[in-house]
Every structure is written in structure tokens, then in C-alpha cells.
Amino acid sequence: MTKNSFLSVLSQKKVLALFLVGKIVRFLFFYLFVYYLIRETGSLAGYNFHQTIFIFLTFNLVDILAQFLFRDVYRFRPKIISGEFDLTLLKPQSALFRSMMSGADVIDFVTLPFIFSLTIYFALFLDPGVLEVVLYTALVVNSLFIASAFHILVMALGIIILEVDYLIWIYRDALNLGRFPIEIFGRNMRAFLTYLVPLFTMITVPSRVMMGVIDFGAVAVSFFAGVILFFLSLRFWRVALKRYTSASS
């Protein structure tokens, strides 16, 4: 499935080039903005230039990896409305797996080496040890579990209430707030970003670990949140499947 998805997009080399250029240009703009901002102010919410750029890159890493893996979630609602989801249910394969991961996005895939390289380059400025690197990697994987939990929740809600696939865009926009350190936000907003959209867990905790600020309590809560959210989303998916009426087919 993923191979077919890759082949169909790989035939459009112009599109791939355009997206790659767009992502590089966006990073360059952001880099310039943060550079001139911190040159004038000295720091942003207590973070220096390299730390601020590293937080931006961690956000990008989680966001692009999630988009790359779960692109088919964006195409889920039409399948429910048209009744095409019936065909997915008939196949001898997990309906959840097929609905989420059958169309990995090659456009995001080609930007990953660029983001990986930059993340490693800027991580070197933070002078991390082995423990920091291992924990950071594990926490980024944990962030992907949280991201997958949100994608599953959105699909499950899509089955129950047809209108809500817009939720995925709201989730994306909320996650976009993680481009900057969470400390820039006010108390209420920070609570929203910690408990409702676990931006703190997904972006801030891994970034801080790489900076050498290891709060083992926060790390443990992050892993716990990842496991709990993932299993809750799976349960909700099963509940939603039982409510699927196949009304359009």
C-alpha cells in the first residue's frame, strides 16, 4: 500500500522539489527571524538562539514524522461518507492500520533527511551526553505515540459524528504553537497546552532533556501519558467501530 502511495507521488518530481524548497525556505525564514530577535533581546523566554532553534526542529521532527506516517487520516472522512470504508472492513487486515497508514506521504519523507540533519547539527551545540541522546530519542518516539493517539481519536470521532475531521486541523494548529518554547505562553494557555494538547510532553520535555535539563518526574509522566493516551484511543476506536452504520453504502 505504502509502496503504491510512494510510486504515485514519486512520478511527480516537480511537486516533490517544490515542497522540499518550500520547507527549506520556511526554515531559513524562521532561522533569520529567531536570529535577529535573539540578537536584539538576548534570549526568548530564557532560551538562547541554538536552544530556540532546537525546539523548533523538535516540533518539526514530530510533526513531519506524524504527517508522513498518518497521512491517510486526512482522507478518512470521504471514505466514511461514501461508504468506501465497508471495503476496508472486508479486508483481512486491521481496519485501523489500513485507515491510518496505507498512504505514507513521500513528500514528507523527502523532507525528513533535511530535518534529521539539522536536528543533529543543532543538537551538537547543546553538547548532549549518551543518556540525553537516548532519552531524547525515546521521548520523540513517545511523542509519535501521542500523535497517533490523537489521529485515532479523530478517526473514531469521524465515524460517530461525520463533520469532525476538521478536528485534525485544530490539533495541527494547536501543535503548531509548539514552534516556540512553551514558556512564552500565559498560565492558562500553558495549562491548556500541557493537559489538553500535551505539547509540553511532546515537544518541551524531549527538547529540555537534550539541553541537559533532565526532570525524571516529567520524563516518567510523559511516557505514562503516551501509553495511556494510546490505549484509550484504541478503546475509543473499537467503540466507534461498533457504531458504524455504513449508512452511505
Partner: peptide, 12 residues
């Protein structure tokens, strides 16, 4: 969401 981001960024 966009406005929140820009507001808090500059407010900070």
C-alpha cells in the same frame, strides 16, 4: 490559534 501564538510570543 495563529493570533494566540503571535500575541504570546511578543508579549513574552
Amino acid at each position: 490559534f495563529q493570533i494566540f501564538l503571535v500575541f504570546y510570543l511578543w508579549s513574552s
